[in-house]
Design a protein around this nucleic acid. Structure first.
Lengths: 109, 109
DNA sequence: CTCTACAGTATCCTTTTAGATACTATATTA
DNA sequence: TAATATAGTATCTAAAAGGATACTGTAGAG
């Protein structure tokens, strides 16, 4: 295998992707493009406002998600995935593919 | 994008891979094949015995890792990755690739 | 007879993550 | 004049993850 000494690199990606809601947020932004705060919230039943804010802030800090605030009332804030964030797509896809097989595995064993 | 309604599948993979030591354990088993308990332990400075045991038990429960006990004294226990566990390799690879780019990104931005 | 290697358990403690709930400000709508 | 939508904060609590430390049993080596 080609990696070996740089095995720890895997954890960088993991560190960004873990969080109960992060992959869901990213998939939403990938699939639906720019979204407002409450738009995201409504598409994730079960998430609290605090959690959504927190996860988005973390993704923003990592430069995965961009946050644009409009000086309007009522407030308008738009979230979108960055080019850099888009680079995570292959990982999400690999996990998705695996997830589908995994379901099958559980059923047939 | 091809997934959409089945977005949650991504979390199945994530659920198996998260844990401070799991990806490291899996990479070791992928790179070095069957390993004894203390062999793994020595290759992961910083992990405690309890943690290694715990992570291995969880991976065993998920059928990602196989545990073989030899009735010898001193004890001998061998761990290896299962065929099913090997199916995670594309994910680990995708994360590794990303991790390398990520490092570059951090440096150049 | 004591020491070491092996593969663990058991117990306690700290940190991190997640969740519940209540609160804020303001323009627009009815 | 009161309710609504928006995008949050603040505070408290519960649960999960991670870590430190001490302990176990037994064959073989010295």
């Amino acid at each position: 295998m080609k990696y070996e000494l740089s095995a720890c690199r895997v954890e960088d990606a993991l560190g960004i992707l873990v969080g109960k809601w992060k992959p869901i947020i990213l998939l939403h932004l990938l699939n639906h493009g720019t979204q407002r705060f409450n738009q995201l919230r409504r598409s994730m039943p079960g998430i609290t406002q605090k959690m959504l804010t927190k996860q988005l802030r973390e993704l923003e800090t990592e430069d995965i998600v961009e946050r644009v605030v409009y000086a309007e009332i009522p407030p308008k804030v738009e979230y979108s995935i960055t080019e850099y964030g888009r680079s995570l797509q292959p990982i999400l896809e690999a996990m998705h593919e695996w997830g589908v097989k995994h379901t099958v595995h559980k059923q047939t064993k």
